[in-house]
Design a protein around this nucleic acid. Structure first.
Length: 501
RNA sequence: GGCGCAUUCGUCUAGCGGCCUAGGACACCGCCCUCUCAAGGCGGAGAUCACCGGUUCGAAUCCGGUAUGCGCUACCA
């Protein structure tokens, strides 16, 4: 047989359930599916698994799609754009599942179960008490169907359960974990159709993956133990199963499943904190996958070109945001000045104190942002790093004005001398300022660090700030002179014996 | 409890029988650069490759067991 015969088109799917925010672990799964599809020039499909009516959250679908869009992941078929296998909401495909369930019942591979939740709970409690493996006791498995007509007529709720083969070995080859074997004797008669008419994940995903022509199922490792159930369903339904690849999970710092108490877990949180989508995508791609032993910073295209399930590892990874911060800094520094200003703007508008006039001047901002560009790891730091450029008046912590190896009088003298010099300047650009201040240090017999440090506090109100001369040039002569004056006054109000911080 | 998967520096990872006295990156420490902070450069510390046996001339790499972690064991996905 020619090789190409069994080479099928790659069709993968991301199948989130809209029960909350788009979790990064979940998004990482979406990413691997997307990378796999794009690498193989296949299709990436988004399918909404809204079969749990109780847990469905309003707006969750939009948030999920928004997360994908933000990262630049596009889909070929999905809830908003439809496609050849529409609809892409499972809640709109109920007939398909019902038909499948009906067929299984007729074939004898499934049956109605009338056990009440109360009975099931009691049964489970008893099993746990007796240290038996919990699971459905197959109470309704071999009940004749004749009695059920009466039960249905009397309004009794029922579910459809799979008639799990009692003794069967299920072996499959997982792309990332190779051969895995399960005994069907350890699997109970799981529910296929719930009493509300909705399918469980097991039935719905099998029916849809088959109907939508999915070639590879790439999902998190937590699904590994469910795979034999799915395989039995494929078998009973006469479907050819797809290939499976179970991806390593994402864990929190304490090695437990990543959740809200570990901090930000929603992809939207990362956007809000000022991570660039390219950095986020690069970082996420490296959680469980690697190109080689050294390459880390890669463009989306490079990742797509090189992505392979062969290089996906089997170990769960701890989501470590320190490294993300570093990587985001790299991406920020790689931005050209215009782009950095552009991406910073929304964060400035959002984070600067409310008393600062809006909208911000784009021209003014574009003169400030280059001064902090290489210092930023996250865009939500930008406002805190630059607020003194926008404030009219500064409030000083007096002790900051006395830098190390200085005292009150020395500082006062330095500032007063500088004040006079600055006031008299005709040109106020970076070179001119440096031309005045550098000789001044010598004149005052101070180290440049002492003079510039003192001035830095006077000009910015803080001990750590962007380079002095550039900062002053952006602020302008008037404001600089005014601030130095205020610093002088602040120092004068201090007792003569005052010490620096 | 049962079943399954996993186990290399604190973290992300490279490694697929000899290239490993285990490589890279983040974080950390030191030095250089320097007006502070960053960025950058250089250097350092950090992993008896979970443990115990076996196979082999030779094992992080193959096999078995143990331990630990994680997952599943719902009318949740």
């Amino acid at each position: 047989m020619p090789k190409d015969k069994d080479k099928q088109e790659v069709r993968v799917r991301y199948a989130p359930s809209p029960t909350g925010y788009p979790h990064v672990g979940n998004i990482r799964t979406a990413l691997f599916n997307w990378l796999f599809a794009r690498h193989h020039k296949g299709s990436f499909i988004v399918r909404i698994e809204d079969t749990d009516t109780a847990r469905t959250v309003e707006g969750a679908v939009d948030a999920i799609l928004e997360g994908l869009r933000w990262l630049g992941m596009d889909w070929d078929e999905g809830p908003d754009i439809s496609g050849d296998y529409a609809p892409y909401f499972q809640s709109q495909r109920l007939n398909l599942y019902k038909e499948a369930a009906k067929r299984l019942i007729e074939q004898g591979d499934a049956y109605y179960c009338y056990c009440t939740p109360e009975r099931l709970e009691e049964m489970r409690a008893e099993q746990i008490r007796l240290k038996q493996p919990p699971g459905y006791d197959r109470h309704c498995r071999d009940k004749s169907a004749t009695g059920s007509v009466l039960k249905v007529m009397s309004g009794l709720k029922r579910v459809v359960r799979f008639r799990t083969p009692l003794e069967k070995q299920i072996t499959f080859t997982d792309i990332v974990r190779s051969d895995v074997t399960f005994e069907s004797s350890c699997i109970d008669d799981f529910v296929l159709l719930k009493s509300d008419g909705y399918p469980t994940y097991h039935l719905a995903s099998v029916v849809d993956d088959h109907n939508m022509g999915i070639s590879h199922v790439l999902r998190a490792e937590e699904w590994l133990s469910s795979t034999p159930r799915h395989l039995m369903l494929y078998d009973a339904l006469g479907y050819k199963p797809p290939q499976f690849a179970h991806l390593p999970m994402l864990l929190g710092k304490d090695r437990s499943k990543l959740s809200k108490r570990h901090g930000a877990v929603s992809i939207t949180d990362y956007k809000d904190q000022g991570y660039l989508p390219e950095a986020m995508l690069n970082f996420l791609s490296l959680l469980g996958w690697s190109l080689d032993d050294k390459t880390e910073i890669m463009s989306i295209q490079e990742i797509i070109n090189n992505f392979s399930l062969k290089r996906v590892n089997q170990t769960a990874a701890i989501f470590n945001s320190e490294k993300l911060d570093w990587m985001n800094g790299v991406y920020i520094r790689n931005l050209n000045p215009e782009d950095f200003t552009r991406v910073s703007m929304p964060y400035l508008e959002r984070d600067l104190p409310p008393d600062i006039e809006r909208p911000l001047s784009a021209e003014y901002v574009s003169r400030i942002t280059p001064l902090i560009h290489e210092r930023v790891k996250r865009l939500d730091e930008v406002a805190g790093l630059t607020d003194f450029f926008f404030a009219e008046e500064l409030e000083y912590q007096p002790e900051l004005l006395i830098v190390k190896k200085m005292n009150r009088d020395l500082s006062l003298n330095a500032l007063e001398t500088a004040y006079l010099k600055l006031k008299r300047m005709h040109q106020f650009d970076e070179e001119a300022i440096e031309g005045v201040l550098r000789p001044l240090a010598e004149e005052l017999e101070l180290k440049v660090g002492q003079l510039f440090g003192t001035l830095r506090v006077a000009i910015t109100g803080r001990a750590v700030a962007p380079p002095l001369f550039q900062t002053m040039a952006v602020l302008g002569q008037k404001r600089c002179v005014r601030r130095v004056k205020k610093a002088i006054n602040t120092l004068k109000e201090m007792p003569e014996t005052a010490e620096g911080a």
